[in-house]
Design a protein around this nucleic acid. Structure first.
Lengths: 166, 166
DNA sequence: CTTCAATGGTTGTAGCGACAACTAATGGAA
DNA sequence: TTCCATTAGTTGTCGCTACAACCATTGAAG
């Protein structure tokens, strides 16, 4: 059976979505790199740790909550550890596992970079949309993630965008 | 004045959007790499050329339509040229400029990889959404692109004012 | 108490993209 | 005509990510 091509309306939406996924990561990286010497993924990792009990998470749990592979996370945490923002230690209960803990310097780093990052997120995305569009976007991304990452941890997710949480 | 933090609803939407922009490019790359030895960006470049008159575009026009920097495009086209899928030649009218033209091999490559790619796009995104959600997503991405890429090709400005049009 | 597949994580390497520095051509002003 | 800011594009280098290969530990079957 032949390919079911995209209609003009579908194509129009697709082209815009591609532009967003192509441009947004670079824009987030650029601001955080310039102001805090962090990539967006670095920030995300630190933010997840800052919300965890004892500021500690197992590598696998951290990988799940950041939608990254374990290999990628391992490299990133290695660099963050070299900068003194994170420390690793073997998990006593399961000696295969590694725990990653946010250091005090790491916590300070998150606190100082959060305001500028949140301002960027508002400026580029949140404040560009109406409350209704935000609702629509949440449902749309939910539906896409069901295909893209079935069984992923996109629910019950906490993150450091509100520093009053700790 | 203090930072205006994200509300729980805003955060919930943002987290999902981040997951999508983090996962989608990799998923598109994986399928195209596996089946056609192309990155998604490679495919996009070839596809843009395939629809241009004479299968030819100036580097700057190609960069605009793919939302890439000229530097990135230059590297990519260099690799595609080495593989015989594209060829470059100086523009006669403006000797600063370079034209990129899709070769017959390049055209064959696009034709053979298009069905699998479109199937992936449907499977991951288009078919996961209702027609209404597709409309919503187009307007949402439009609004975001106004912030992310002001004056970009997505707003139709370039189309109406492109002197080479028609 | 072995065996062995599954789990948890690390590391080497190759390739891609960002950034900055660079060359070259154009077009307008003095 | 000369000057020079702007436009067009290329290239070198560095950092990050994907992929695959790898090692260690666990838990359950036999």
């Amino acid at each position: 059976m032949g390919t079911k091509w995209l209609t003009p309306e579908e194509l129009s939406t697709w082209v815009r979505l591609v532009a967003v996924v192509e441009l947004l990561p670079g824009a987030l990286d650029a601001q955080l790199r310039r102001d805090s010497a962090l990539t967006h993924f670095d920030y995300y990792v630190l933010a997840m740790l800052s919300e965890a009990p004892e500021r500690t998470l197992r590598m696998t749990a951290l990988a799940d909550s950041t939608t990254a592979t374990l290999a990628r996370l391992s490299h990133v945490v290695q660099r963050l550890e070299a900068r003194g923002l994170v420390e690793r230690f073997p998990c006593p209960q399961d000696r295969r596992a590694t725990n990653a803990r946010l250091t005090d310097d790491g916590m300070a780093k998150v606190r100082e970079s959060a305001p500028g990052h949140v301002e960027t997120v508002r400026g580029l995305v949140i404040d560009a949309l109406s409350p209704r569009q935000l609702d629509q976007l949440r449902e749309i991304t939910d539906a896409i993630l069901d295909r893209l990452d079935p069984g992923g941890a996109h629910n019950g997710f906490r993150q450091r965008y509100d520093p009053d949480r700790d």
